[in-house]
Design a protein around this nucleic acid. Structure first.
Ligand code: MN
Ligand code: MN
Ligand code: ZN
Ligand code: ZN
Lengths: 163, 163
DNA sequence: TGACAGTTGCAAATCGTTCGCATAAGCAAT
DNA sequence: ATTGCTTATGCGAACGATTTGCAACTGTCA
């Protein structure tokens, strides 16, 4: 049973507990949008999926599966790591999240609501900065076209050091 | 004991066997260059390293560790997979090979002698095409600079489909 | 030809991720 | 609400790629 109040919070009623968590309006809208995307594809909206989606909706970084699990457990301690992995894969397949595979360490995730961008990774601190270049995107398509290809998706990562 | 003839081949004498293999002039030169790079850094030129280097010098594709091992065993069946992994890491650390991490599957390798290029991966066939764009390289540096960074290295992969 | 430090093969360990299976729980129709 | 069908879950074991501990081996240089 899931109730949404009008005052920027999500109440979740489980058999023996009641959770309440403050979320921004935009995060709540984002959460609803992702739920709807799943529902539209006939996926079930489970307690664990809502917990995971709410974590992703709030994140403004690029957490790995373990970090998503850690945060999700603060919403619902019963969610298992296996379910986090399964859910992230489901969400990826439905175009709701993107999987990022930076050098070293496991996959990292971000929601797919923001417009396309690529990443700078600070090799010293691990900090991630987002950027977008229409010029580069256009050049990629041109180069592929010259070789007889269409770009399905691409990966552009700049491993950098503060100058 | 390692002998090089003048006629495009490498003879390798081991305790109980004599191998002979045809290699192109350029591959032999390439092999020597890589050996020298290791020697210059005080690394030992072992039988297994020469075998692996000769495989890499001849390769014009992007084999993974297992494929390097398979090819190396045809030169010297005693080389273990662990040594292949260790050697590839050593070569990477000495700037002699590059490690590529395309989506799905393990790391793949290529020698670092060719000028810098990026990769198109055919999502249907797995075929890899190399390309280079000075414009893109320049734009990457400009974007990083605007954000206060120097590019240490980067990854640009275009996952494409034949049009 | 030593002597020593670097290298190897082997098997076991690691790490991130996936899987099988029995149980739990969405969801739509009653 | 209750039912019934089907999907999702938690657990732990399995997985695949890569790394590592260790004892034996071998380049290298004096
Ligand atoms: Mn991002
Ligand atoms: Mn290449
Ligand atoms: Zn892009
Ligand atoms: Zn490049």
């Amino acid at each position: 049973m899931l109730l949404r109040t009008t005052c920027n919070s999500v109440l979740r009623v489980t058999s023996d507990r009641l959770y309440s968590r403050a979320m921004s309006n935009t995060a709540i809208k984002h959460l609803r949008d992702m739920e709807d995307a799943l529902r539209a594809d006939g996926m079930r909206i489970t307690r664990q999926r809502v917990a995971i989606l709410s974590v992703l909706a709030e994140a403004n970084d690029h957490p790995d599966a373990d970090e998503v699990h850690r945060r999700t457990k603060q919403v619902d301690p019963s969610v298992s790591l296996a379910t986090v992995y399964r859910t992230l894969s489901v969400l990826e397949n439905h175009g709701v999240v993107h999987r990022l595979t930076f050098e070293g360490g496991g996959a990292r995730f971000e929601t797919a609501d923001a417009p396309h961008h690529d990443h700078i990774i600070d090799v010293d601190t691990g900090a991630v900065v987002e950027f977008h270049s229409d010029k580069i995107e256009r050049l990629q398509a041109e180069i592929a076209a010259e070789l007889g290809y269409d770009v399905v998706h691409h990966k552009l990562e700049l491993y950098c050091r503060k100058r």
